[in-house]
Computed example of a mutant assay.
Amino acid sequence: MTRRILGLVGIGLIGGFLSGLFGIGGGILMVPLLILILKVDQRHASALSLAGVLPAAIVGSITYAASGTVDYLAAAFIAVGGIVGALIGTRLLRTIPLGWLRWMFVVLLLLVAVRMFLELPTAAHQGVTVVSALLLVALGLVVGVASGLFGIGGGVLIVPALVSLFGFDPVIAKGTSLLSMIPTSISGTINNWRGKLVKPIDGLVMGSAAALASFPGALLAHVIPARLSNVLFAILVVAAALQLAWRAWKLRAKG
């Protein structure tokens, strides 16, 4: 038990530091760490990662809110879709075969790596209208499904969408994304707990460690040029994808 707790703390510290360094939600990094270090399967890693998103999202959103860089109305609309999406995603998590989950997550990692090399276009921000509100709910639904299924925080999807489709300032997009993920994480984690996929205390331990470690990572991020940071993160994600692909291939070979 002690060894497991230490492992969760260690993974939280590593994932949180890298999350702060690269400005990406820790879930995309902690899921591979859980699989490769603690040897949990894809299903339990995704459930645990989603629970771990909560402490970091709370701490991060408070930080952004203190500086006035959160759009509360947009976050609310995203959260509406996210809550429903998380319920759908966590239900799929329990039903999709493990082999499919492994390869789907590998593909997600590779798509994220490609995304880091792309320059985002910026739309003109028009405020929240009826149409944009419906689109924000739809965005939350998609992100909620992905979060429930893969255990990711959603920032890797929400932030680019808010910047390129809705014209948000990148900093406000990050703050809004973090706030919207709080109810999404709670919704998905409750469903995973009911499905006996996760113990919320495990997510709290790992997520709290990640939240603490994200601060020194964020400080270091101000020293590294943004383009170099994107390249380093993409290399890290591709390396994780190759490791997981190799592991999935070996498990498939064993039948």
Rank of each mutant, 00 (worst) to 15 (best):
G68C: 06
L50V: 13
I83P: 14
V70H: 14
L34E: 01
F22V: 04
G81F: 08
T122V: 14
L111T: 08
L120W: 00
L48M: 14
G23T: 10
R43M: 06
A124L: 05
L38P: 05
T69V: 02
M116H: 09
L108Y: 15
V31W: 00
G82A: 15
E119V: 08
V70N: 11
A76D: 02
G23Y: 11
I62M: 14
A124V: 14
Y72C: 01
M116F: 13
S46Q: 04
V59N: 08
A56H: 02
L118R: 12
A56G: 11
G25H: 00
S46E: 07
V40F: 01
L87F: 09
W100P: 00
L101M: 12
I37S: 04
L110V: 15
I37H: 03
V107G: 05
I28W: 05
G82D: 03
W100Y: 13
T63Q: 12
R91W: 07
L33D: 11
H44Y: 02
I24Y: 12
G27I: 11
A56R: 04
G82F: 01
G25A: 08
G23Q: 13
G23W: 09
L21S: 09
T95G: 03
D71I: 03
F22S: 07
A75E: 07
S61P: 03
L92W: 15
W100T: 15
L50P: 02
P55V: 07
G81K: 05
G81A: 04
L93Y: 03
L93W: 03
A66L: 14
A74F: 06
D41E: 09
I35F: 00
A56F: 04
L36M: 14
A74D: 10
W100V: 15
I83F: 13
A45D: 02
V31P: 02
G25V: 06
R115D: 14
L110Q: 05
V70P: 12
F22Y: 15
L109M: 15
W100S: 08
W100Q: 04
T95W: 03
V40T: 13
L110F: 14
L36I: 14
L21N: 07
R94C: 01
I35D: 03
F105L: 12
L108A: 14
